[in-house]
């Protein structure tokens, strides 16, 4: 299987990349690690006429702490992030993406710009209330996670724009857990749940965030669960009761291995498990 023919450019600056992209018109696409785009192109489900490879653009592969946030360059590979405890849920979830070879190529920016609701990082970004920076002809703008994911494989990154940086709050003092349920280890999540918990001094739930993978056409916040827990106790009973609302407002797509009803059930179970683990710190 091979992609349809396309033209290719590998500019060495972001400005030239943006110009090349603009010149290429609607069917031009930026290329990062290619692990979302190339499989689609090989199956001929995508056929861009021009790929603008960002590999020579400097400064896009970095992880920096600034004030209370982590700034992660868009071309930072999953492998650069996997298992890094200081990155919280980002470090945990990146270690669970596909397999090592994919993590060695796939990038955080590429994954977020692709906007697959079955991917892990969009959910984590949503839960962490992070944001991405995009550059386009009109300049630079920041898009919050809540605004980024618009529909299935559709994000607020406009044609001609390039996602350059990801910012996530460090959430120091928060507990985190990403529970991924898949058929096999290397598979996409059947359902995934990212839970973040901040305990108050009395042990109660000062704040909490829960987001869901593959429970709709975008990653989703489980707001009912959050509201039910926020400000209350964090014991097993409270968590279990809150988790029962995890599938509220979701519309999970069914597939061969998981019906919508089963996914809803998984969302509840995994939310409980993720919350328990996150609450433990």
């Amino acid at each position: 299987m091979i992609p349809s023919a396309f033209d290719y450019a590998a500019p060495d600056s972001l400005d030239v990349a943006l110009q090349t992209l603009a010149d290429g018109g609607e069917e031009a696409k930026p290329l990062a690690g290619g692990h979302s785009l190339l499989p689609l192109m090989k199956l001929r489900l995508a056929a861009p006429t021009l790929l603008v490879d960002l590999r020579r653009v400097p400064g896009l592969r970095s992880v920096e702490r600034e004030d209370g946030s982590w700034r992660i360059g868009a071309l930072t590979r999953h492998a650069d992030l996997q298992g890094r405890r200081e990155l919280g849920a980002v470090g945990e979830a990146t270690a669970l993406i596909a397999d090592q070879q994919v993590r060695n190529r796939g990038t955080i920016g590429g994954s977020l710009a692709h906007g697959d609701p079955a991917s892990d990082l969009p959910t984590v970004l949503l839960a962490m209330e992070g944001a991405v920076t995009v550059r386009g002809g009109a300049g630079t703008r920041e898009i919050t996670a809540a605004d980024l994911f618009q529909d299935y494989l559709t994000t607020a990154v406009a044609p001609g724009e390039i996602l350059t940086e990801v910012r996530v709050p460090a959430l120091e003092g928060w507990g985190h857990a990403y529970e991924k349920f898949s058929r096999r280890a290397e598979d996409w999540a059947m359902v995934g749940v990212c839970a973040l918990v901040q305990r108050g001094e009395d042990g109660s739930c000062a704040d909490v965030r829960v987001a869901l993978t593959n429970m709709g056409s975008t990653p989703l916040r489980a707001l009912a669960v959050e509201e039910s827990l926020r400000g209350g106790p964090l014991d097993d009973g409270a968590i279990a009761a809150a988790a029962e609302q995890a599938d509220e407002g979701t519309d999970p797509p069914g597939d061969l291995n998981a019906s919508p009803q089963y996914k809803r059930h998984l969302a509840r179970v995994l939310t409980r498990r993720a919350l328990r683990r996150a609450a433990e710190g």
Binding site: G34, L38, P39, K42, L43, D53, A98, Q101, V102
Partner: peptide, 29 residues
């Protein structure tokens, strides 16, 4: 496999394992 599942095409690119069926030759410049 063509879908980056089987890993039979694994090579090292700058010292790291990658699936060479999901890397363009131009990306290996």
């Amino acid at each position: 496999c063509d879908t980056s599942n089987c890993g039979a095409c694994t090579v090292h690119l700058d010292g790291e394992a990658v699936k060479s069926c999901t890397v363009l030759a131009v990306q290996a410049d």
